[in-house]
Design a protein around this nucleic acid. Structure first.
Length: 428
RNA sequence: GGGGAGUUGGCAGAGCGGUCAAAUGCGGUGGACUGUAAAUCCACUGGGGCAACCCACCUAGGUUCGAAUCCUAGACUCCCCA
């Protein structure tokens, strides 16, 4: 990167590794110097929570606000009804409108922790707020997509799109090359997303759309459309698509996706995810996911040998603090130290509470392992036991048929799967 | 509208009447080595059940002593022609 930005925002993006590509570095940079730039990122409501894969976008919005600009979080209430086909091998199952609304409610919760939306009264404010402050805006594209009239839309918007060009986008090419079907419904997604950008520019003066590099095509479409319809020049900026250094997709743990909502991924598990970062990723992640000064990130990343573990603890603490608060981070760290350094138990371990009713005459150890989340199925639990990977209070379980009664559970027991995954079981 | 090909475990992809829960690769889990790292090596890896055992190769029927494999109908996908 030879470009030297004048704006704080661009400087941070470049320094910290957020920048994959930008449609026009210089003009965007100048706009950022001149005044408050409203910028948006869209989030589709395909699940009740976002996961760490979206954290990089959230951090971009946070930096945007920190450097004096206005973040707009756009919920895809309308677009989720269509489903983004970009770089996907198959069609997503269609979600019901109710499910989408419920997902949006879940997703919204997390943003309040990262962005300042101002007072309730300001939150839904319209154009009035724009340019006057940099309070974040929470919007939903269902607002303008739900009521669209098909023919009007085709005539006003559709005429600006060339199917030839749409087919040439990398995001759908692989799908077509693999001879997988791409429904007309999905094919329209990029038009709707482009229209979002147009509407956000028209209504809120939004100048910039950000997103992962998989969104490049969709973003560029919005820029082109806005130029044609409104003759406004607006910008796009993408972040690299993150994989860990060992080539895996960002954000998976043994229990699946690492969610940002606390009720779907406990702070302790969240903390563990970061604590287990691969050595090679520590520096990169510190810059992207924490707000520690660059020099500090680099110092920590340079630690040698087992000392990088200290850097990983800092990383876990910082990221967990942003997402769940300082208290939760401290509790997670305390539990981790207790469990891993002393081989004991900690309050923050995933805990399964059973009522006397549930136990009845006794409950099998296999069931306990499954219900505490250490195995996905009974078969898996039994396999674990057979391979000596399952432990109860640190003693290997040898008997898969073991049944525990209420008396055996009168004091909490610790179940372990391997060396790293632990859970507590106790009476409610 | 007509013709052809296909649908197999988390994914990719073999199998084409019994020895098939089903090759192989990826992914995942456990173990060894370590630093709660990476790389490497070893093992395991469809589901339910404490177990006996049961369910399972798109769906529903059928033929067979016996079907993922054959037949019929249906659903979905891809290709070619109009």
């Amino acid at each position: 990167m030879t470009y030297h930005p004048k704006s704080d925002f661009m400087r941070v993006m470049i320094e910290r590794g957020f920048l994959a590509d930008c449609t026009d570095y210089q003009s965007l940079d100048e706009a950022l110097v001149e005044g408050v730039v409203p910028a948006y990122i869209g989030f589709d409501a395909t699940a009740k929570s976002l996961h760490v894969g979206s954290l990089i976008q959230i951090m971009m919005l946070r930096w945007l606000q920190k450097t004096g600009h206005q973040p707009i979080t756009l919920m895809g209430g309308g677009t989720t009804k269509v489903g983004d086909p970009s770089f996907r091998a198959d069609e997503r199952p269609l979600l019901t409108p109710e499910a989408i609304d419920a997902n949006i409610d879940g997703i919204k919760q997390v943003f309040a922790k990262y962005l300042d939306y101002g007072d309730e009264t300001n939150r839904s404010s319209s154009s009035e707020a724009v340019g006057q402050n940099n309070k974040a805006l929470m919007l939903n594209n269902a607002e303008w997509l739900d009521g669209l009239n098909y023919l009007d839309f085709l005539r006003d918007i559709g005429r600006h799109f060339s199917v030839n060009r749409m087919l040439s986008f990398e995001s759908v090419k692989s799908r077509l090359d693999r001879e997988q079907s791409l429904s007309f419904l999905e094919f329209n997604y990029m038009i709707l997303q482009a229209y979002d950008f147009l509407e956000l520019n028209r209504r809120y003066g939004c100048l910039l759309q950000m997103g992962g590099s998989d969104q490049w095509g969709n973003i560029v479409n919005g820029i082109d459309l806005t130029r044609r319809v409104l003759d406004h020049e607006i910008y796009g900026l993408t972040s690299p698509l993150l994989t860990t250094s060992d080539g895996k997709k960002m954000g998976k743990s043994q229990n699946g996706a690492v969610w940002l909502n606390g009720d779907m991924c406990a702070p302790y598990e969240f903390w563990q995810f970061w604590r287990n970062t691969t050595d090679a990723d520590v520096g990169r992640f510190l810059k992207l996911y924490t707000e520690l000064p660059i020099e500090e990130c680099e110092r920590l990343a340079a630690l040698e040998g087992s000392e990088v573990n200290d850097a990983k603890i800092v990383l876990a603490n910082e990221v967990t603090t942003l997402c769940h608060g300082a208290e939760a981070a401290a509790a997670a760290e305390a539990t981790a130290r207790e469990v891993f350094e002393k081989g004991g138990v900690g309050d923050d371990l995933p805990t399964l509470e059973l009522t006397a009713d549930e136990i009845g005459d006794g409950i099998s150890i296999v069931q306990l392992i499954v219900r505490s989340g250490l195995a996905k199925s009974g078969k898996e639990a039994k396999r674990l036991i057979a391979e000596n990977g399952a432990k109860m209070d640190d003693a290997p379980l040898s008997e898969a048929g073991l049944v525990l009664d209420a008396a055996a559970l009168s004091t909490p027991i610790k179940l372990s799967a391997g060396k790293k995954r632990h859970a507590l079981v106790k009476l409610a």
